[in-house]
């Protein structure tokens, strides 16, 4: 098969107004629209995230991108090819890690890598791949005896064994402990650094924020936000917050007076309230400066100053108007 020719600036994946409705599970049931309207473009060499709660349509979207599922409408181009018309065209160049583990219980790590490698015209060096995924010590272990994290890493290795240009990774840290998650994040960054474009599906806000160069937030089968994680967070409306802690009640009392006065006359500061043994001051981007100057002028020295972190979760709340629950699985109306 000829390698798809592509100039570096052209999008690696282009999805336009994708739509997919599943037929009713039972006679008389209602059909379920998993994807109502999803569009995005993935640029070469980036980690692109598809973020949203469970049931938002993320997996259906990437399965359509991978040509594993027929869309009802919209367009999909991967490496300049249309996987909806002929999925075989992209198989050589797109590595896919599916959500569920899928190997024989008794196949060893090395055997799995070798046999999957044999399907591709170009194949990655097994030893290097084992090393990259920290599986060298487990290469002769059977699949059923691997830990969750090891299975997950093998699954990623199998997605990379054919030297893909694009890797689709679906919920790859679900069920992993925090240490394994962090290790997997580092790994995904190394994969990207090796030149592979990564399409990352996740319902973890922190994961998307940490890893993705750009992302779309999907909710109810539609894109509700798009951009870089920092731009999305920067774009948040509303106040920022600063938390201050003082060693003794005297200092805290004086600080409350100073900061309440500040909130009254400074436009950049909207409020100051005591929360437990801390004081939370809210305001515009300049709130921290204003607080520090006011405290310095009054010679009140806080023990600890923290800015209230704003995350993609706040972005989700703002664009959907409801709290983010990763595990929600609501029926999406057509």
């Amino acid at each position: 098969m000829t390698s798809p020719q592509l100039d570096a600036s052209a999008p690696v994946v282009e999805v336009g107004h994708l739509r997919k409705t599943y037929p009713a599970a039972r006679r008389g049931g209602t059909p379920k629209t998993a994807v109502a309207d999803v569009s995005f473009q993935v640029t070469r060499g980036e980690i692109f995230g598809i973020l949203g709660p469970n049931g938002a349509g993320k997996t259906t979207t990437v399965e359509c991108v991978a040509g594993l599922r027929h869309a009802d409408g919209g367009s999909v181009r991967v490496l300049g090819q249309n996987p909806q018309a002929d999925p075989a065209l992209i198989r050589e160049h797109v590595g896919i890690q599916l959500q569920e583990a899928a190997l024989h219980d008794k196949i060893t790590v090395r055997e799995a890598l070798d046999v999957f490698g044999s399907f591709y015209s170009a194949r990655a060096d097994s030893a290097e791949l084992l090393d990259l995924l920290d599986l060298t010590a487990h290469r002769d272990q059977q699949f059923a005896k691997l830990s969750g994290g090891q299975k997950q890493r093998l699954s990623i290795a199998l997605a990379l064994v054919g030297k893909p240009q694009v890797a689709i990774l679906d919920e790859l840290t679900t069920g992993l402990d925090p240490a394994a998650r962090r290790a997997t994040w580092n790994l995904v960054e190394r994969v990207r650094d090796s030149g592979v474009t990564v399409l990352l599906v996740t319902h973890f806000m922190d994961e998307a924020e940490r890893l993705c160069d750009r992302l779309v937030v999907i909710d109810g089968g539609r894109v509700v936000a798009e951009g870089t994680p920092s731009a999305l967070i920067e774009g948040l409306e509303g106040d920022r917050g600063v938390l201050l802690r003082f060693s003794d009640d005297g200092a805290r009392g004086r600080a409350v007076n100073v900061l309440t006065a500040l909130a009254d006359h400074d436009d950049d500061v909207t409020g100051a309230i005591a929360v437990g043994d801390e004081i939370e001051v809210t305001g515009t981007r300049k709130v921290l400066f204003a607080v520090v100057q006011a405290l310095a002028a009054a010679d009140v020295v806080p023990d600890d100053v923290r800015t209230v972190e704003r995350t993609l979760e706040d972005v989700f709340v703002q664009v959907t108007g409801r709290e983010y629950r990763a595990e929600e699985n609501e029926e999406v109306a057509a």
Binding site: A66, L68, A88, R91, E92, V94, G95, I96, L98, E100, A101, A102, L103, H104, F116, F119, Y120, L158, G162
Partner: peptide
């Protein structure tokens, strides 16, 4: 059941 058939359908095999 184990998704092995689906896993293979993501490869050229």
């Amino acid at each position: 059941e184990k998704g092995i058939l689906k896993r293979l359908s993501t490869t050229p095999m």
